[in-house]
Amino acid sequence: GLTEEQKQEIREAFDLFDTDGSGTIDAKELKVAMRALGFEPKKEEIKKMISEIDKDGSGTIDFEEFLTMMTA
């Protein structure tokens, strides 16, 4: 499992990506986040990433899903 410290770091990354503070990361926010990390993702790639992570089919990534992605 994760230490509380690791969870906190992932939470901070999540909050950075969640620019509108909605508690979820949408495609637009993910794209901005990827760019910040030096990637140039295409729209299809973003969609694919979200569909792989987005277990509940909401079209957005919540913290639990993000946590799973970061620790996979």
Score class of each variant (00 low, 15 high):
residue 27 A to G: 05
residue 14 F to N: 01
residue 10 I to L: 14
residue 55 K to T: 09
residue 31 K to H: 13
residue 55 K to I: 10
residue 70 M to N: 01
residue 6 Q to K: 13
residue 72 A to W: 10
residue 12 E to F: 09
residue 14 F to S: 00
residue 60 T to V: 11
residue 31 K to N: 11
residue 58 S to G: 06
residue 23 G to N: 03
residue 30 L to G: 01
residue 65 E to P: 00
residue 38 G to F: 01
residue 32 V to N: 15
residue 60 T to F: 08
residue 43 K to Q: 13
residue 15 D to H: 08
residue 46 I to M: 06
residue 16 L to H: 07
residue 45 E to Q: 09
residue 56 D to M: 09
residue 36 A to G: 05
residue 56 D to H: 10
residue 57 G to I: 07
residue 29 E to L: 13
residue 56 D to G: 06
residue 13 A to Q: 10
residue 71 T to V: 12
residue 50 I to G: 03
residue 62 D to N: 14
residue 33 A to R: 02
residue 61 I to Q: 00
residue 33 A to Q: 02
residue 48 K to I: 08
residue 62 D to R: 11
residue 53 I to Q: 04
residue 66 F to T: 00
residue 66 F to C: 01
residue 46 I to R: 01
residue 3 T to I: 04
residue 63 F to I: 06
residue 9 E to D: 09
residue 52 E to D: 11
residue 60 T to R: 10
residue 43 K to L: 15
residue 47 K to D: 15
residue 23 G to Y: 01
residue 62 D to F: 04
residue 35 R to Q: 14
residue 48 K to S: 07
residue 59 G to Y: 07
residue 28 K to F: 10
residue 60 T to I: 05
residue 7 K to G: 03
residue 44 E to N: 08
residue 46 I to Q: 02
residue 39 F to Q: 04
residue 4 E to F: 10
residue 62 D to L: 05
residue 19 T to L: 08
residue 72 A to F: 09
residue 3 T to K: 04
residue 21 G to R: 09
residue 49 M to R: 07
residue 52 E to V: 12
residue 50 I to L: 15
residue 8 Q to T: 08
residue 65 E to D: 09
residue 2 L to H: 07
residue 13 A to W: 15
residue 20 D to W: 04
residue 31 K to R: 10
residue 1 G to M: 11
residue 21 G to Q: 07
residue 5 E to V: 11
residue 17 F to E: 00
residue 64 E to N: 11
residue 16 L to C: 14
residue 65 E to V: 08
residue 63 F to D: 00
residue 63 F to S: 00
residue 58 S to F: 07
residue 1 G to F: 10
residue 42 K to I: 11
residue 64 E to R: 04
residue 65 E to L: 11
residue 24 T to D: 12
residue 21 G to D: 06
residue 70 M to G: 01
residue 7 K to V: 13
residue 48 K to P: 02
residue 5 E to W: 10
residue 37 L to M: 12
residue 61 I to C: 01
residue 40 E to Y: 15
residue 69 M to K: 02
residue 47 K to M: 14
residue 25 I to K: 00
residue 46 I to K: 02
residue 60 T to P: 03
residue 38 G to D: 03
residue 63 F to N: 00
residue 9 E to G: 13
residue 15 D to Y: 06
residue 41 P to I: 14
residue 14 F to P: 01
residue 39 F to M: 08
residue 44 E to K: 09
residue 2 L to Y: 10
residue 61 I to T: 00
residue 1 G to T: 09
residue 36 A to W: 13
residue 5 E to G: 08
residue 1 G to C: 14
residue 65 E to R: 11
residue 8 Q to P: 02
residue 20 D to S: 03
residue 19 T to A: 10
residue 17 F to P: 00
residue 28 K to R: 07
residue 51 S to T: 10
residue 22 S to V: 04
residue 27 A to D: 05
residue 28 K to T: 08
residue 61 I to F: 12
residue 71 T to E: 12
residue 47 K to Y: 06
residue 10 I to K: 01
residue 62 D to M: 05
residue 13 A to G: 02
residue 50 I to Y: 04
residue 38 G to R: 00
residue 66 F to R: 00
residue 32 V to S: 15
residue 39 F to A: 02
residue 26 D to Y: 04
residue 62 D to W: 04
residue 10 I to N: 01
residue 28 K to E: 15
residue 32 V to T: 13
residue 72 A to G: 08
residue 26 D to I: 02
residue 55 K to P: 06
residue 33 A to P: 00
residue 6 Q to D: 06
residue 19 T to P: 05
residue 60 T to W: 05
residue 25 I to R: 00
residue 24 T to E: 08
residue 58 S to N: 13
residue 26 D to N: 10
residue 5 E to R: 12
residue 1 G to R: 11
residue 28 K to G: 08
residue 57 G to K: 06
residue 8 Q to V: 08
residue 65 E to G: 10
residue 40 E to L: 06
residue 9 E to F: 10
residue 50 I to C: 06
residue 44 E to A: 07
residue 29 E to F: 13
residue 26 D to F: 05
residue 3 T to N: 07
residue 34 M to E: 02
residue 14 F to E: 00
residue 22 S to Y: 03
residue 70 M to L: 13
residue 71 T to K: 08
residue 16 L to W: 14
residue 55 K to M: 09
residue 26 D to T: 11
residue 57 G to M: 11
residue 66 F to I: 03
residue 57 G to E: 12
residue 33 A to G: 06
residue 40 E to A: 09
residue 5 E to F: 10
residue 6 Q to C: 14
residue 59 G to P: 04
residue 56 D to V: 07
residue 67 L to E: 02
residue 28 K to N: 14
residue 33 A to I: 15
residue 47 K to A: 12
residue 15 D to Q: 07
residue 48 K to Y: 02
residue 23 G to Q: 03
residue 7 K to D: 03
residue 64 E to T: 09
residue 25 I to H: 00
residue 70 M to I: 13
residue 24 T to A: 07
residue 7 K to C: 11
residue 61 I to W: 03
residue 52 E to H: 13
residue 28 K to D: 15
residue 38 G to N: 04
residue 72 A to L: 14
residue 7 K to H: 10
residue 26 D to R: 06
residue 8 Q to G: 06
residue 33 A to F: 12
residue 46 I to L: 12
residue 9 E to H: 15
residue 7 K to N: 04
residue 60 T to E: 10
residue 40 E to S: 09
residue 25 I to P: 00
residue 21 G to C: 11
residue 38 G to P: 01
residue 17 F to W: 10
residue 41 P to H: 11
residue 10 I to V: 06
residue 2 L to N: 03
residue 45 E to S: 11
residue 48 K to F: 04
residue 56 D to S: 12
residue 12 E to Q: 12
residue 70 M to W: 09
residue 21 G to E: 05
residue 5 E to P: 06
residue 36 A to P: 00
residue 45 E to A: 10
residue 68 T to D: 12
residue 46 I to S: 02
residue 27 A to Q: 05
residue 9 E to Y: 09
residue 39 F to N: 02
residue 67 L to T: 02
residue 16 L to V: 06
residue 17 F to N: 02
residue 24 T to P: 01
residue 4 E to D: 12
residue 10 I to T: 04
residue 46 I to A: 03
residue 67 L to S: 01
residue 63 F to P: 01
residue 51 S to E: 14
residue 32 V to M: 14
residue 18 D to A: 04
residue 57 G to R: 06
residue 52 E to Y: 14
residue 41 P to Y: 15
residue 14 F to W: 04
residue 43 K to P: 15
residue 34 M to R: 00
residue 28 K to Q: 11
residue 64 E to C: 09
residue 53 I to R: 04
residue 23 G to W: 02
residue 58 S to A: 07
residue 35 R to G: 07
residue 27 A to C: 10
residue 5 E to H: 12
residue 66 F to Y: 02
residue 41 P to A: 10
residue 51 S to F: 04
residue 49 M to D: 02
residue 46 I to H: 03
residue 20 D to Q: 06
residue 72 A to E: 12
residue 10 I to A: 08
residue 60 T to N: 06
residue 47 K to L: 14
residue 45 E to L: 14
residue 2 L to V: 07
residue 14 F to T: 00
residue 69 M to E: 02
